[in-house]
Amino acid sequence: MAITIKNIPVLNNSSAKSFVVMADNASKKTVVVNFSSQVKSAKNILEKSKLK
């Protein structure tokens, strides 16, 4: 049998703190990567597949 899919563990202590700081900073950031063309392609792929 293949390796079991592991759930994401709870982060504690320093790994928890640095993760929250990273997530808060990213939420405040305004410069983002423009992913419009990738999203458009993904829509076309889903449209063709009829899976939504």
């Binding site: 390796i3 994401i8 504690n12 990213a26 939420s27 950031k29 983002v32 990567v33 423009n34 419009s36």
Partner: peptide, 26 residues
């Protein structure tokens, strides 16, 4: 340490993440 493995245990996988907030749609 987090997975309860000792130093000599092999770490077969590594957890990684991507923050979707970094992507925008115009």
């Amino acid at each position: 340490e987090h997975m309860g493995l000792t130093i000599s245990n092999e770490l077969k996988t590594r957890l990684m993440f991507f923050d979707l907030i970094n992507l925008g749609i115009e």
